[in-house]
Amino acid sequence: MSGPSFWGQAYEIGLKDLRVEGRTGEVLNITIPFGAVALLLIPLAIGTDRPLIASIGPGMFWVVTLLFGMLVTFRQSATESSANREMMVLLGVDPAAQFAGRVVASVLLLLVFEGVLAPATIILYNPDPVEGWAILILVLLLMAVGLALIGTLASGITAGLRSRNTLAPLLVAPLALPLLVGASQTYEALAQKSSILTPILLLLAVVLGLAVVGVLTARFLEEASR
C-alpha cells in the first residue's frame, strides 16, 4: 500500500500548521496587533508632518510586513521538537513536501497579515492613491511567497539551535532585501506611471530561485536536523 502523494503530504503538513495556528491564534491575536502597533508608533517617532507620513506610508508597510512577517514564518518551527522531526522521518514524509506544506501555510497566514495591515496603513498614513490595484495584489502575493520561502529555509537552517531566536532574523532580514526592493520599486513605478517590469521580474526571479533551492536542499536540512 503506497502512502499519500507529494502534494498529499504537503497538504497534510500545511493543514497541520494551520490547525496549530487555529488553536494558538498566534498570528491573529499577537503578530497582527504587534504589527499594527508598529505602524502606529512610527508616525509618533517622526512627528506629525502629514505629507511626510503619507509619503513614507507604503515603505513602512513593506518594512513592517518584512519584520513582523518573519515572526509568522518562524512560528511553525518554534512548535516543532526534535521528536516531531524524528517522527516525520519514521513516517517517510518527503522533506520537500514538508517544505512545500510549510511554505503554503505561511503564505496563507502572511496574506491574512497583509490583508489586515494594508487597509490599516491606508487609514493611518493616507498615502497618495495609485492606479493598478491588481498589480499591487500580485506584489502582496509575491512578497508573501518570498518571505514564506526565506523564513521556512531559515527555520530549517536554525532548527533546534539555542541561538535560533536571534540568528534566524539576522539571516532573514538581509536576505529579504530583494523582496523589499522589488515591492517598493513596483509601488514607486505605479505612482510615477513608469514601467513595472524590472521590479516584478526581480520578485519573480527571487521567488522562483528560493523555491528551487528550498526544494533541492530540504533533504539535506532534514538530515542535518537529526
Binding site: 537552517i157 536554525t158 536576505l175 530583494p178 527571487v206 533551492v213 536542499t217 536540512l221
Partner: peptide, 14 residues
C-alpha cells in the same frame, strides 16, 4: 557543514 552549505547557497543570490 550541511546547514552552512545551504546558507552559503541561499545567501549567494545577494
Amino acid at each position: 557543514a550541511t546547514r552552512s552549505a545551504v546558507l552559503g547557497i541561499v545567501a549567494f543570490f545577494l
